[in-house]
């Protein structure tokens, strides 16, 4: 029969391992704090798009990209903490940050270049590049969710640009959202978060198109991007 000591010794090994795991999880989470700050700053900067006049848009977008680009050294620090082969174990800590950064980058790049930034470029722009970021990687899932969060912002921008008498932007936005919606329709989604977020695209598209309709009805917003 098991002597009490043997049970205790056996479980002690498991508990020690768990404690070490818990400590590392906490350390990784704490190490992400500087990036959380960066995501807040970038989001705040881009929020100014809703109120700033259109000639300021480019400067705001550039500023946001500059902020995002400062993330690199923190990624390097985080990468150092993660044991080899265990990136996905700590993905929970970085995944929300990836999504948020993709949102900001995609937003800025749309304003600047009227394009949807590809995942690879987004990863580069957030400083997720080079040997020293180790196994940190932007998954397609994170990227695709981040992009949808950006689209969620666009109906608001469309409406606000009309208020600011920028009648050209809503057309550009509607065409952009339309292209994105068509692209997402290519994906085989299963019943997960990405799927739920994809469903929200339809409503965003409708809202963006409604603004264009209102403008067209009144003979405004001539250009269709």
């Amino acid at each position: 029969m098991a002597a009490p000591a043997s049970v205790e010794a056996t479980l002690a090994a498991a508990i020690t391992q768990m404690e070490a795991d818990a400590t590392l999880r906490k350390t990784v989470k704490e190490a992400t704090e500087p990036i959380e700050e960066i995501t807040r700053q970038a989001t705040a900067e881009l929020n100014r798009l809703h109120s700033a006049s259109s000639d300021k848009h480019e400067a705001i977008a550039n500023k946001a990209l500059e902020i995002v680009a400062t993330a690199h050294p923190t990624w390097v620090e985080i990468a150092k903490l993660i044991p080899k082969g265990e990136f996905f174990r700590y993905q929970f800590a970085v995944s929300p940050l990836f999504k948020s950064l993709v949102t900001s980058i995609a937003f800025a790049r749309f304003i600047l270049h009227n394009e949807l930034v590809p995942a690879f470029t987004a990863a580069t722009l957030m400083g997720l590049t080079g040997e020293d970021v180790g196994e940190l990687q932007l998954s397609s899932d994170d990227y695709l969710q981040g992009v949808i969060a950006m689209v969620n912002e666009l109906p608001r921008l469309s409406i606000n640009s009309v208020t600011a008498q920028n009648f050209e932007l809503p057309g550009r936005i509607a065409a952009f959202v339309n292209d994105i919606f068509a692209s997402y329709s290519m994906l085989n989604l299963r019943n997960d978060n990405l799927r739920r977020r994809f469903d929200s695209l339809k409503y965003d598209l409708k809202r963006c198109e409604d603004v264009v309709y209102d403008l067209t009805l009144r003979g405004l917003g001539a250009s269709k991007a």
Binding site: A119, S140, Y143, D179, I180, A182, S183, M186, L187, L194
Partner: peptide, 15 residues
């Protein structure tokens, strides 16, 4: 849109 279709093929295959 054509360009996006190309990049999204890559995301689709990863998913």
């Amino acid at each position: 849109r054509e360009h996006l279709a190309k990049t999204f093929e890559a995301y689709r295959s990863e998913l």
